[in-house]
Design a protein around this nucleic acid. Sequence first.
RNA 1: GGAGAGGUGGCCGAGUGGUUGAAGGCGCACGCUUGGAAAGCGUGUUUAGGGGAAACUCUAACGAGGGUUCGAAUCCCUCUCUCUCCGCCA
Length: 426
Amino acid sequence: MHDLGAFRTNLDAIAERLATRGLTLPLDEFRELDKSRRSAITESEQLKAEQNNLSKEVGRLRREGVNTDELQQRSRQMGDRAAELAKQVETVDSRFREMLAGIPNVPHESVPTGKSADDNVCVRTFGEPAKFDFEPQPHWDLGPALGILDFDRAAKITGARFAIYMGLGAKLERALINFMLDTHSNLHGYTEVLPPFVVNSDSLYGTGQLPKFAEDLFKLEKTDYWLIPTAEVPVTNIYRDETLDVERLPVKFCAYTPCFRSEAGSYGRDVRGIIRQHQFQKVELVKFTKPEESYQELDRLTDDAEDILRRLGLPFRTMLLCTGDMGFSSAKTYDIEVWLPGQNNFKEISSCSNFESFQARRANIRFKGGKKSELVHTLNGSGLAVGRTWVAIVENYQQKDGSVLVPEALRPYLNAEVITATAQLK
RNA sequence: GGAGAGGUGGCCGAGUGGUUGAAGGCGCACGCUUGGAAAGCGUGUUUAGGGGAAACUCUAACGAGGGUUCGAAUCCCUCUCUCUCCGCCA
């Protein structure tokens, strides 16, 4: 959500920046709406002020025993007209807010202009794609063969885009969660939180999923509850409608949660394997910072996420997203893409964004140092998507016989050095 | 799920339908006082929106939303949240 005042005064400059996202603002309509909104407000408030005065007059006269029938009637008529106008204000105002709420964040000046993912800029790489003296298999072949992944039975108990992890497959997922949480909380200074996995509409509005992206979410019937699509929602909303003491900033949280996404509109994309599931696990990093520190904190957050991949010895590249490829609420985003030999390609495993005050304004999260309170900047990034990390390990550490070597850093968590075929699934 | 109690400013806590945006207290800020501090005294201390260069001014907000009334923190209805007891339950 944009700031109305700033939006109004810098309309042309903002429109220009938004154009780089491929968005054309209806400037005339906006100005027209703004004008009618303000004149409606002025008119109805003036009327209301008059009516308030009349009411006071009535009160005074009645205490003196004067008959006020006529005055009361006038006041009533005035009140009715004021209410009518107030309704008009409400109509214009809600149309205005709707419009404002539907406008994405303005890209930071350091974001490259571009139309699609093709225009993203690689800012660094780590490691070299491993060379195999055999044909590396995709995880959807390796997993079932090892008896650690079962798609068919998952489809039976639930449906498409669900999976069962078995044996060391399940343990690997759990080991990764623990490894990531330990690394972030013990080494990177994040406070671990375990939030609700179900949230209300206000929270989704606060982080920007609602009202625009309801179709991407699962809603619980007959309630105002939704399954979270990411830990970003409950964790960012921890401080909704609160003012933090400036001394506490930056606040850094890491959280493990399952995530649920309807994946409406992604039919045919990543249909094989566990790359794109309705339910997946993620460890998320969330920060609340002072405005002047948010970009430095974004770089650190991205580095914290990358650190997980470095420790696991997984090759990756970090992409700075161009204006056309960024998410709705973001002002700047880095995607970390891990190398997947089974698909001979890089695949997004983390998305680290600075939302500046865009979410904070919607969620009303402030900080106070001096006299005046100010909106915080919010940031988040995956640290990392656990399912895709699982895939990266299985595919990068696969051996000729179909077994999977366990990365050094993970062995204390898994109590195994190699994942070999077992008869877990039959 | 059943029964009861309650949601007022940063906090505590008043509030007979009518100059109550809200007494009083605490806290906080500034000033006076002091060698310095404490105490004391004085002033100030919500947010959002409209108008204004500014001083300032108007509107709205006492959990949320409706209603009654010339006028609602105060009366009525619905919802919601918190607490206590009972039931059920991991």
